[in-house]
Structures are given as C-alpha cells and as structure tokens.
Simulated assay, not measured.
Amino acid sequence: MKHDLSKFLSISRHNETEKSVARAAIKRALEAVGLNSMTHTFIHEESNEIGANVIAVQKGPYFGTGNDKMLILSANYDTVEGSPGVDDNGSGVAAVLEAARVLSTLDNLYSRQNTIVYVFFDMKHKALAGSHAFVEDVLLPLMERTNTKVIGTVIADGLLHFDPFPASQAMPPEFESFFPEAAQLLHEHSHMGDFIQISSRNDVDEELVRRYTRAYDRSCQMLSADWEFHPWSLNLQMNIGNITTLDRLYKLHPFLYSDHSSFFFHSKQKTVQIPTIYLTDTLNLRGVRQYCVQCDGLYMMTEQNMKFLALMTDSLIRLLIEMSGSSAAGVVDDLYSFMFNIDVE
C-alpha cells in the first residue's frame, strides 16, 4: 500500500491527464493479481466532460444468475484541484487494491460462493457523477437482467488519518441535532480524531453495519492492542425515510455528500434497495486537513497513519471473506500472518 500511495496516489488526479495516469496504474495493479478490468465511461450531465470508472469483477460460481449474492467494494480515485490526494482518496483506492490482492490470492486456496466487484469511481468531486453513472448504467440493469442480489456495498473514502489529540476532530454544524448519541460519544472522547465513521441508513443497512463492525472490532483486537490510543467506530445511522422537507435534506447534506448517496438515492429506490455503508476518517474535518488542502500529501504517510490504514484494510478483507462465503472464513485468524505480511509496504 505504501508503494501505491507514494508512487501514483500522491499526485493530483483532478484533470483528465492526471486521472488517466492513475487509471492506468489501477488497471495494472488489478491485472497483476489476475483480475481483468474494464473502463466504464460516462458523460457528466452539466459539463459534458467524459468520466471513466474502473471496474473489476471477481466472479463467484453463480455470477449472472439469481443465486448470486454480490458484494461491492469501492473508492473514488479523483481529487479536488491542487490536492495530492493521499488520504482523499488515495487511501481508499490503496485499501481496495490490497483487498483485491488478498482475496485473489485466497481464491487459489479456498472456494468462494459470491461475486465481489471492485469499483474505482471518477468524478466524486463533480456531483458524484461516477458513482451515479455506475448505479444507473451498470448495476441496476445487471440486477434487473439477472435477478442478482447485492448484499453489501462499502464505500471507502479516507482511511488513513488517525489523530488522537483532544479537539483535533470537527463536525458539521448539524451533527449534534441529527446524531445526539454520537455527539455525546465524541465529547466523551475529547473530540479526538481516533475513530472511523460508519454512515448508514437505520433500516436497510443494519445487518451490513453489524457485520462490518464485527470485522472492525476483530481487526482492532489483532492490530491495535499495543497502541497507546485505541481506535473505535462512530456509527451515524440516518433515517432517510423521515426526510420530508428540502430544508432538512439540505442540513443533512454534509453527511450524504459522497458516493454512498448514489446507492441510497437512485431511479429504482422505491423497489430496489442496496445495503450500503460509508467508511471515512472524516477527511477535511480532522486535524491539519481542516486548514490545509495541500497538506493531503506524503506528509500524511506517518507510521501511525499507515498502521491505521492497515487496520482498516484488514477489516475490509475480513468482511469480504465472511460475506463472500469464502471457505477461508473459518481459518482467517490462522491466515493472519500470511495475509498481513502486506502490512503497510
């Protein structure tokens, strides 16, 4: 992961020239572990710019049939202008690539029942255009055509920044009114940036949250037992069904503005619900990044932050192993040293 972050995920990926370099590197990394990738192009409705998502499918035995239970692990690879984008969202891309490497290796040794799709979204920073196009143009038609069920989607958006110092964590103005219990927990933790935020809906996503939290807790037990400060998870469950006014939706906007919204709100949401969780270190609400866009560079790759990224990647791998029906699930802790020789290198 350190190699990916330092080589091609620490350079701005805002314009098409910059993004094409990143896409090529992502595709090479996938091909190196035996995964063929495809480029899904789309047009940004307002600017008429052409965007490009990268998709790789790790097929299960029931792929393309109604018996398949699909998992999606995704991260956006574009950046805001002027940002090197190591945390936002080089860290998410690196974690997804590492998960793909480990799961592909395990496929050589263990059977797996369900399909895993790895998606790298373009244009998150342009109205979530890439994830919206993926859901509408690729995912929903596939689900309708094959009767495939999606049992879980994970959006990884900033998994690197761990800042265990009092008052290092900010939150949007409406945080306390929407999430009073979470606000109380954050207060008890002295507003330290020592957690991962898990955003979800309070009905559709409950089972996915439960299973991810179990994987995350196990990763913490295995990886952070000797840390001075112990990472924890801050769960933000949104009651989307109770949003009845534009004013309330506007106030909830800071908690919805990432690619999970494309899976929450789509053209068939009344009849097709896609379990989805959003994982983030809160990006520019934490530590020095509150004040400095350009600071999201190699500076972020401290030993502490890289350990946190390894922990987050561990949790994603554990979730995929369990939910994909891999026979490695029963021996995952025995495989631990094998899996995480990857560590942060």
Rank of each mutant, 00 (worst) to 15 (best):
I72V: 15
L35E: 00
L283S: 14
A56W: 02
S258D: 13
S91A: 14
K270Y: 06
H40S: 13
F134E: 10
L309M: 12
F179G: 03
F8Q: 03
L142P: 03
L35T: 09
Q269I: 09
H40M: 11
Q58E: 08
G158R: 04
Y216M: 12
F340R: 12
R214W: 09
T244M: 05
L186R: 10
W232S: 09
H253C: 06
N67F: 00
L186S: 04
Y77S: 00
Q184W: 09
D281C: 14
I240K: 06
V332Y: 03
L223Y: 00
T17W: 12
E144F: 02
V117P: 00
E46V: 03
A215T: 10
V93F: 06
G152F: 08
F63V: 05
I55Y: 04
S233Y: 03
F121K: 06
S20Y: 09
N305P: 02
L97D: 04
K19R: 15
V135Y: 00
Q294F: 08
N48I: 08
T213W: 08
D122E: 07
N15W: 05
E174S: 15
A99H: 08
S47I: 10
G287Y: 02
F179Y: 11
C295W: 05
L285Y: 03
M171H: 15
M123F: 10
S258P: 02
L335S: 01
E174P: 10
G34C: 03
G287V: 03
I26T: 04
I50H: 11
S10Y: 02
P180M: 11
V93R: 01
D4C: 01
S47E: 11
D247L: 06
T146V: 05
G92M: 05
Q169I: 09
A183M: 08
G90R: 02
Q294T: 13
G85L: 00
V344P: 00
V288R: 09
K69D: 07
E45M: 06
M312V: 04
H132C: 03
H260W: 09
H3S: 02
R248W: 08
R13G: 15
N114L: 10
H14W: 08
V332F: 07
T213L: 15
Y118A: 06
T148C: 12
Y278G: 00
T146S: 14
V57N: 06
L223S: 04
K7M: 08
F340L: 07
D157W: 10
D87G: 14
V150L: 01
L103W: 03
L256G: 02
D88E: 09
V344D: 13
E144L: 13
L106E: 00
Q197I: 11
A99P: 05
Q169A: 07
L316E: 12
H260L: 11
Y62F: 15
F165H: 12
L316S: 07
M339E: 07
C295R: 12
S224D: 02
V57P: 11
K268V: 07
Y62I: 05
G287S: 10
F340E: 07
T148S: 14
L9T: 02
L320K: 04
W232C: 07
N48D: 13
D247P: 01
S190F: 14
S315T: 05
E98Y: 06
